[in-house]
Simulated scan of single mutants.
Amino acid sequence: MPDDPSQVSDLEKNRILVDWLEYQLRQAKNRVRELEVQEAQERRQRERARAERSWKIQPQRAGRPAMLHRGGCTLAAGANGLINREEALIALEEPDIEACDVCRPETGLLSG
């Protein structure tokens, strides 16, 4: 590139502009990826927090009674969806639903 900017051809100016715009596009794409990762992490945190404030009912199977779990209990295999506090209180009163011995869902229910 010449020392005098007035000696730069239109072609060279446009190549420089293209390089600059490609750099800006890479920066913008990187920022979008960062924000997508951040948004996904925040969504997972919100889902975990919601699960911890909720409960699940694991269906009865193989002669075992149905089980009430905290929403985040990993032992709640086969449990679909989360239920609220009122529904969990009702479930605890059912004779064919037991509370999980590991996550102790009644602790959060009966003290609330």
Results as ranks from 00 to 15, higher is better:
Asp4Ser: 14
Pro5Lys: 12
Ser9Val: 06
Ser9Ile: 07
Leu11Arg: 11
Lys13Ser: 13
Ile16His: 14
Ile16Val: 14
Val18His: 06
Asp19Leu: 10
Tyr23Ala: 10
Gln24Val: 12
Gln24Arg: 15
Leu25Asn: 10
Leu25Ser: 14
Arg26Asp: 12
Ala28Pro: 02
Arg33Ala: 08
Val37Gln: 10
Val37Trp: 02
Val37Gly: 04
Gln38Lys: 09
Glu42Phe: 02
Glu42Arg: 07
Arg44Pro: 02
Arg44His: 13
Arg44Met: 14
Arg46Trp: 05
Ala49Ser: 10
Ala51Val: 07
Arg53Ala: 09
Ser54Trp: 02
Trp55Glu: 00
Lys56Ala: 00
Gln58Ser: 09
Pro59Phe: 09
Pro59Ser: 10
Gln60Val: 06
Gln60His: 08
Arg61Asp: 05
Gly63Phe: 07
Ala66His: 02
Met67Ile: 13
Arg70Ala: 03
Gly71Thr: 02
Gly72Asp: 08
Gly72Thr: 02
Cys73Trp: 00
Thr74Cys: 07
Thr74Tyr: 04
Gly78His: 14
Gly78Met: 11
Ala79Phe: 03
Ala79Met: 06
Asn80Met: 15
Gly81Trp: 07
Leu82Ala: 03
Ile83Arg: 02
Asn84Pro: 04
Glu87Thr: 06
Glu87Ala: 12
Ile90Ser: 08
Ile90Tyr: 13
Ala91Arg: 00
Leu92Ala: 12
Pro95Ser: 15
Pro95Phe: 08
Asp96Arg: 10
Asp96Val: 07
Ala99Thr: 02
Ala99Tyr: 01
Val102Thr: 15
Cys103Ala: 05
Cys103Asn: 01
Arg104Met: 06
Gly108Ile: 01
Leu109His: 02
Leu110Met: 15
Ser111Cys: 09
Gly112Lys: 04
Gly112Leu: 05
